[in-house]
């Protein structure tokens, strides 16, 4: 579909400019939802899906080269696997360090209730799950795009 010596096929300049402003804002909102998951509605799953929607908006409006997409897919798979591994490591650390010595034991200091930095490992787990969900949904979309481009 896209040749290597041409610019990738995207939408018009108006759509591109709007997306240039909107996609970082949506991504920032996803980070906000993820980090404040233990205080307000939201959490890792919600924030991850919102961050993935920012990626999808960017790819849809700008278009992309096939080589770039394959590189992107490789990075996304690596990110997803590493985030899941970090979440598992968090659980194992709870087994080693927590006083009660249970899987997913909360080994950090709880802090004062209702503040941003509180809750021990809950915000950290939120962040890892958010990264994992974001990379998972984005890599599904990128894989579908690569399949379509190779057909044409």
């Amino acid at each position: 579909m896209s040749n290597d010596n041409q610019t990738p096929e995207g939408m018009t300049i108006v759509v591109k400019k709007i997306c240039q402003f909107m996609a970082p804002t949506i991504f920032l909102f996803g980070i906000y939802i993820t980090v404040h998951g233990h205080l307000t509605p939201g959490g890792g799953f919600t924030g991850g899906v919102i961050m993935a929607s920012a990626f999808i908006l960017q790819i849809l409006s700008y278009g992309s080269f096939l080589d770039k997409l394959q590189q992107e897919k490789w990075h996304l798979e690596l990110t997803e696997s590493l985030a899941l591994l970090c979440f598992l490591m968090l659980a194992v650390l709870g087994l080693l360090l927590a006083t009660t010595s249970v899987f997913f034991g909360n080994f950090l200091h709880r802090g004062s209730f209702g503040e941003l930095i509180s809750g021990g490992i809950i915000p950290i787990g939120n962040i890892f799950v958010g990264i994992e969900v974001c990379a998972a949904i984005s890599s599904i979309f990128v894989a579908l795009l690569i399949f379509k481009d190779k057909e044409a």
Binding site: G37, L39, G44, G111, G119, I121, I122
Partner: peptide
């Protein structure tokens, strides 16, 4: 659990 949002508290503490 230390989480004001009880749904997140269940997801990452009680049923992690």
């Amino acid at each position: 659990a230390g989480s004001a949002n009880i749904v997140t508290g269940i997801l990452f503490h009680f049923r992690a």
